[in-house]
Amino acid sequence: MSKPLGVILAGGLARRMGGGDKGLLDLGGQSLLGEVIARMAPQCAGLVLNANGDAARFAGFGLPVIPDGIDGFPGPLAGVLAGMERAAELGQSHILTAAADTPFLPRDLGPRLRDALRPDRPIALAATREEGRVIRQPVFGLWPVALRYDLRAAIEGGLSKIVLWTDRHGTALAEFDTGPPHPFFNVNTPEDLAEARAIWHKGRTEL
């Protein structure tokens, strides 16, 4: 399999942060989105950003911005679908997805997910093991573009929960260590942002 198209999902409404784009928040010299781009780009054949509204606010990142193709903010599955449809236009077979507010995502996310795929499990999702339980991280996935028609029908039928759809098709899991830092730490609150800044600064000073 060749490298997938990377799709960074930035379509959330960020209500707990007071609205706006979480990916544009500053870590202390780098935005959350900038760090996600730096980690995703080497793993992908190209990157696109899934976001709704005025695309000009992301102009500084130099990425194509693709909105949801389904109205009403139906959730991250709509961003996955938008990425699949763009990948189909580009002739690519898979997309790799990650959230725009997760600055510590694994630098080997794509290869690990690819290695987890099986013929009867065409979708691969990241997971962690915490307190003896496997916790799926469904925003971080490797998705076959061939399932885009099925996904569109599911979303238009009212489905919004990722794992309800992935479980229909067979899902492989790739388990990642929980850090520190936790690889799927995401910024939802001002307290999360302060913690992310501290972790990021510590990592920079230890280089």
Rank of each mutant, 00 (worst) to 15 (best):
L96T: 07
L90F: 06
T128Q: 11
A82I: 05
V80D: 04
R107D: 04
W143K: 00
P64C: 00
G110K: 06
P144F: 00
G72R: 11
P74V: 03
D71Q: 15
E156M: 13
F104C: 08
G75H: 06
I123N: 02
V187Q: 01
F104P: 06
F176L: 07
G62N: 08
Q92H: 12
L151E: 00
A126V: 09
F185M: 07
R133H: 10
P103I: 00
L125A: 13
H169K: 13
L105G: 03
H182G: 08
V80M: 08
A154L: 12
V163C: 14
R152C: 01
R129E: 14
E89S: 13
K161D: 12
H182Q: 07
T189M: 12
R168S: 03
G158Q: 11
T171F: 02
A82Y: 15
G179P: 13
F140M: 14
A174F: 11
W143N: 08
I123T: 09
E131I: 10
G75N: 08
P122Y: 01
N186F: 11
T178R: 07
D115R: 11
L151R: 00
A87Q: 04
S93C: 05
R136A: 15
D68N: 15
A116C: 09
H182D: 12
P144K: 03
R168V: 05
P74K: 13
D177A: 14
F185P: 05
L125K: 07
H169I: 02
H169N: 08
G158R: 11
A127S: 15
I155D: 10
P138H: 03
L173K: 00
L77H: 03
I70L: 14
F73Y: 12
E85G: 09
T97I: 00
A116G: 05
D167S: 15
R121D: 02
H182V: 05
F140R: 03
P119Q: 10
F61C: 12
A124N: 04
G158L: 10
E156A: 14
S93D: 15
D150K: 12
T189Y: 08
E130N: 09
F184G: 00
P119F: 10
I95Y: 05
D115Y: 02
E156S: 14
A87R: 00
F184E: 01
P119R: 10
A146L: 14
E85I: 10
G179M: 04
R86D: 00
L77V: 07
L117F: 01
A124G: 06
L173D: 01
P181F: 02
L159E: 04
R168T: 08
A87L: 14
P111F: 03
T166A: 10
F176E: 01
I70S: 08
P103E: 05
I95D: 03
G110M: 14
F73A: 15
S160K: 09
I123S: 02
G72Q: 14
P111D: 04
Q137W: 06
H94L: 15
